[in-house]
Simulated assay, not measured.
Amino acid sequence: MDRDSFRPGPLNEVARVPAGDRWDLVFVRDLRHPPEKVWAALTEPDRLAQWAPFLADRDLGAPGDATLSTVDGDRTWPERATVRQADRPTLLEYTWGEGLLRWELTPTESGTRLTLRHRIDQPDLAPKMAAGWHLCLDVAGHLLDGDPVGPIRGGEAKEFGWDELRAAYAERLDSPKS
């Protein structure tokens, strides 16, 4: 696909659920690839670099410390991370700064149901996070299809429909449009 013609796909299943004194953004995406292939995209640094909002300093497929560097244009911000659980190819859980990401991969007849649970501090962050993950996972889908478009992250996301996605997810989550 020509990067300039990239447009985000339809909204995904999304929810915001209480998690103690924080919240989990629950984001569900069906992918037409087997769990092993999706697992590789979630754990291998060279694949993550092509779709994720961060760069990983190591393969995330094994427990232990890592560094995930958030990317926005030419700037990066390294943050400590710890892979807490890596059960190939069904469950990956790691911290990223103050956040916690839990990726659940369930095989389906046509591929994989990917469920992301991203722990957030404030409920009004959910639409913003959902819009960002939506774009990242659209890009990951193209990568898995063998049709890479390159990462869309940071401020560049606004050029690819992030504002509209944020507003649509805010409405879906029935939260203030922030």
Rank of each mutant, 00 (worst) to 15 (best):
W77P: 02
R7G: 05
R119T: 13
E109W: 08
S69G: 02
G99T: 14
L11Q: 00
A49W: 04
D59F: 08
E79N: 11
Q50K: 14
Q50M: 10
L125Y: 13
V17K: 12
L165N: 00
L55P: 01
A19Q: 08
L42R: 05
P10F: 12
T76A: 11
E93M: 12
E13P: 02
D21P: 08
R102G: 03
T82E: 13
T70G: 02
W133N: 03
W103L: 06
R117L: 14
R16L: 10
A140K: 06
L31S: 04
T76G: 05
G155C: 04
V14C: 03
F6H: 10
K37I: 14
D24N: 13
A40C: 03
D147L: 10
P127Y: 01
P53H: 10
R16Q: 06
W162R: 11
W133R: 03
G146T: 10
G111V: 12
L116W: 06
A131L: 05
P127H: 00
R119Y: 09
D59W: 10
A170W: 01
F160W: 15
K37Y: 09
H134P: 01
W103S: 04
L101H: 07
P10T: 11
L48R: 04
L31Q: 02
L143M: 13
G61T: 05
R29K: 15
R3L: 13
D4R: 15
A168M: 00
G146V: 09
E44D: 12
T112M: 08
E159W: 06
L60E: 01
R75Y: 06
H33Y: 08
W39K: 09
N12R: 15
G9Q: 10
W23A: 04
E98T: 11
Q85Y: 04
G141Q: 05
R84N: 05
A168S: 04
G154R: 05
V14W: 01
L92Y: 05
V149R: 06
T90S: 14
A168R: 00
T70E: 14
L143A: 12
W133F: 07
A86V: 15
E156Q: 12
T67Y: 07
T115P: 09
Y94S: 03
P34K: 08
G64P: 07
L55N: 11
D174P: 00
L55I: 02
K177M: 00
A52Q: 00
W39T: 08
K128Q: 08
S175C: 01
